[in-house]
């Protein structure tokens, strides 16, 4: 079906799904950072409990999965069409002076997806279906996600794996925000340079913020 949509429509779908996923990352990071600001893990647990029980968030969770699936599927379709459009490669490959990471979005995306599966099994599915220790905070019994995260990040290879994964996320995000705006037709001589800067800032802040969490936990534990 998706093959029927025009190339521009597919790019618009990619852009909208991508921007939605960026908004999710910002929310996810904001909650994770609570682990650094509150050593007891209570704030993180309260936030995680809210995310796991609030009905609006539950609906948004389904929308989020839809967004991921859409972004991945349309991305694979676009890339397949792109590969098919050049069956014979050049003997001397081009090296235009353009954004480096923009050339490897499918590769960084594939790495992110592979680790995402591991990540979901390690945290999301454990919290959703597994049996976690429970803790009483403000007279409410909730899953102790904080302990789960801290225990995981005591293991050096595990921390290293996450750092590498998150670096790839940063590489992917470097060509995400401004590219999404361009796909949506939002290009302006005044604001496009700002969008480029914002895109890089988002990549550094989101990937850096996420990397900080396992690193700080490993160092301080």
């Amino acid at each position: 079906m998706a093959f029927k949509y025009s190339s521009v429509t597919k790019k618009i779908i990619m852009a909208l799904a991508g921007l939605f996923l960026i908004s999710f990352l910002i929310v996810h990071l904001s909650i994770n950072l609570l682990l650094l600001f509150d050593g007891s893990g209570d704030s993180f647990n309260i936030a995680a409990h809210f995310m796991a029980t609030n009905p609006v968030i539950q609906v948004m969770q389904l929308v989020l999965f839809g967004g991921f699936i859409l972004h991945i599927l349309v991305g694979i379709i676009l890339q397949t069409q792109n590969w098919l459009a050049r069956p014979t490669r050049y003997k001397v490959e081009g090296f235009s002076h353009t954004s480096f990471f923009s050339k490897f979005m499918i590769h960084t995306g594939a790495v992110i997806l592979a680790f995402l599966v591991i990540h979901l099994f390690d945290f999301f599915f454990k919290a959703k279906f597994g049996e976690l220790h429970e803790v009483m905070i403000d007279d409410t019994l909730m899953e102790d996600m904080g302990v789960l995260v801290i225990e995981k990040f005591k293991d050096f290879p595990y921390v290293l794996m996450y750092v590498v994964w998150l670096l790839f996320l940063g590489f992917h995000l470097d060509h995400a925000f401004h590219s999404a705006l361009q796909s949506l037709g939002l290009n302006h001589s005044k604001y496009t340079p700002l969008a480029f800067g914002l895109s890089r800032a988002l990549a550094i802040l989101i990937a850096g913020g996420f990397i900080l969490i396992p690193v700080v936990i490993y160092i301080t534990q």
């Binding site: 190339s7 597919k10 790019k11 676009l78 098919l84 081009g94 235009s96 954004s99 923009s102």
Partner: peptide
Amino acid sequence: MVAEMDKQGFGNCTNTGACEAE
């Protein structure tokens, strides 16, 4: 024009900017 472009089998834009550079 977009429909014809797709029909001809060109690839999709990934906003890399190589076209502009070259």
